[in-house]
């Protein structure tokens, strides 16, 4: 049923890949809506960004990117799986639209590096992936988030950047967590990075 369009060519996304993509999209959803972990600081703390980094660090660039896109599509369609139980196009219309746009790119970039490192330098996986996730947090997530806020709120980029920076610390920690967890997942499932 799914193979009829592909005329014997190997599908770019196999059935196992499809299951991994869909399950990680569900994992990101659960991370975003699970009751916030109590950080003791009063900041709403969900694991959404952890789930996004984990998808990239575990599945690699293509599958990680598709998992995040799938999560965004189903959330936009109305299933309340964005943070704070939000859903629908309203989340894009609000001030956080730039962040949503950054999520698939974050998984893609982290996945690009993670898949390579998992094969070539597994011993340094955690360090390298953490650093890449931190760079992506500031350069991609922070930048697109800032642009989105500056545009929607009609404030200068400097002011919007000021709004965005308090979240960097948390997102960098979530990137390190994702790297640590992904390293364990790769040890348990070496087939995740096997070349097909």
């Amino acid at each position: 049923m799914t193979s009829t369009t592909r005329k014997g060519r190997r599908a770019a996304v196999s059935t196992t890949d499809l299951a991994l993509i869909a399950t990680f999209a569900a994992l990101i959803a659960v991370c975003a809506i699970m009751p916030a972990v109590n950080t003791g600081s009063g900041t709403p703390f969900t694991l959404q960004m952890f789930g996004i980094f984990l998808a990239g660090a575990t599945l690699g660039a293509t599958r990680g990117f598709l998992a995040v896109v799938l999560y965004l599509a189903v959330g936009t369609a109305g299933l309340p799986i964005f943070t704070q139980g939000a859903a629908g196009p309203a989340t894009w219309a609000g001030v956080t639209g730039g962040y949503l746009l950054a999520f698939p790119l974050a998984a893609l970039l982290v996945g690009l590096v993670a898949a390579r490192v998992a094969r070539s330098k597994p011993a340094r996986f955690v360090v390298i992936v953490s650093v890449v996730a931190a760079i992506v947090t500031i350069a991609v997530v922070g930048t697109l988030g800032t642009l989105g806020m500056a545009w929607k709120l009609d404030v200068s980029l400097r002011v919007a950047w000021g709004y965005a920076t308090p979240f960097f610390v948390y997102d960098i920690i979530k990137g390190v967590l994702a790297a640590v967890v992904a390293a364990s997942v790769h040890r348990a499932f070496p087939q995740l990075t096997a070349r097909r």
Binding site: T2, R10, S14
Partner: peptide, 19 residues
């Protein structure tokens, strides 16, 4: 991840798959 691989295997068992 184990859940995902189980799902993949279940799809194969139902003839949904091309790999």
């Amino acid at each position: 991840v184990a859940h995902a691989y189980d799902t993949g295997a279940a799809l194969h068992a139902r003839g949904i798959g091309d790999d």
